[in-house]
């Protein structure tokens, strides 16, 4: 519905004039005041016109949870599906319609708990969809149970004596599923978030983006070590082709650990040449995985940015082109021939 009366009668031809308002549905947003989702929504709505894809060619699919409401606020085609199944719904639409830009908005419970299977399979297939995982490490919509990304020992209503569960590292999981694009960003880091999403949009296969999103009602401050005031020093901002270093004066860096993987050091102790140079295009995912494992929880130095961006066959697209042209030329006479091929007899 075009509640704001926006109209792009000319489809692609109108992209030059697109504005943020063209992507705003005008439906009243209903997240809690102060929720990180507002910042993400504003950044996404601002980015969309820059991508040059008109709203009618853009589809947002969501599951259940606070993040699921995202689709109602975008004046694109959208579907608020059922819990955990957004990647499967999106696989259907993206495979059937290679001409569309398909985005999935999901949360840590939706994607990593009930919908874990669809997440990993869409990533391994490399379906052309952009998966935004709003990770707030809590179940918000059901009012505060621990989630599959909550830290062990988390005290919530459902775990009054602390959770026993070991949490998922979402990026390591995505990399384990052979995701071709993996990134992490932060809800209120508008510039960084926008840049990461732009890179995700440009990627040709599945793009998985974890967004640290503060739930100020049920899990406030979960990302304080890396977010907002005081968090900057712990952000390891990954830049392709650059040595990985961070800190107020770039005084810390990342080197290969003698135990395997990566570790944080003082640059002064090892010298700049010892630092690992970030490469998003390296085929082997162990570099990205080591970066993801550098911080299993966002309580200390934590990499953000694009971890991996490699080319891999995209699910469906070229096949769908062939099928579409076959379908377009298939006639009932062809079907008649098919039915009459093989063993038939006449009475």
């Amino acid at each position: 519905m075009s509640e704001n009366g926006h109209s792009h009668g000319e489809g692609n031809g109108a992209t030059a004039t697109l504005t943020k308002a063209d992507f705003q549905s005008g439906q009243e947003t209903r997240w809690c005041p102060g929720c990180g989702d507002y910042a993400i929504l504003a950044s996404v709505q601002a980015l969309m016109p820059e991508l040059g894809i008109p709203p009618e060619k853009t589809v947002f699919i969501s599951g259940i949870g606070c993040a699921g409401r995202f689709v109602y606020y975008m004046d694109t085609y959208g579907m608020h599906g059922i819990h955990g199944r957004a990647p499967a719904l999106a696989t259907g639409i993206a495979t059937a319609r290679e001409d569309l830009s398909v985005w999935v908005v999901s949360g840590d419970g939706d994607s990593l708990s009930i919908g874990g299977n669809h997440l990993i399979h869409s990533l391994r297939r490399n379906v052309p969809i952009k998966l935004l995982l709003f990770n707030n490490q809590i179940y918000g919509l059901t009012k505060g149970q621990y989630s599959p990304t909550s830290e062990t020992g988390k005290i919530t209503k459902s775990t009054p004596f602390g959770s026993e569960d070991h949490p998922f590292n979402p990026l390591a999981l995505a990399l384990g599923a052979d995701a071709s694009f993996v990134a992490r960003t932060i809800d209120i880091e508008k510039k960084h978030l926008t840049e990461v999403l732009r890179r995700a949009a440009e990627h040709e296969g599945s793009a998985f983006v974890e967004i640290y999103q503060n739930c100020n009602v049920f899990n406030d401050g979960a990302f304080d070590a890396v977010r907002g005031k005081g968090g900057a020093d712990n952000q390891i901002r990954l830049e392709h082709g650059q040595p990985i270093r961070f800190g107020a004066d770039n005084e810390r860096g990342v080197v290969r650990s003698p135990k395997g993987g990566l570790e944080v050091v003082e640059v002064a102790d090892v010298g700049e040449d010892a630092l690992v140079v970030h490469d998003v295009h390296v085929e082997d995912s162990s570099h990205a995985t080591a970066l993801a494992r550098l911080a299993d929880s966002p309580t200390g130095p934590t990499p953000i940015g694009v971890f991996r961006d490699v080319k891999r066959d995209v699910y469906g697209s070229s096949r769908q082109q062939e099928l579409l042209s076959a379908h377009a030329s298939a006639t009932l006479a062809d079907l008649d021939d098919l039915l009459r091929s093989g063993d038939t007899w006449t009475v």
Partner: peptide
């Protein structure tokens, strides 16, 4: 999807 002006959310 793809039909201009008929964007809606299900």
């Amino acid at each position: 999807p793809g039909t201009p002006g008929l964007q809606h959310r299900l």
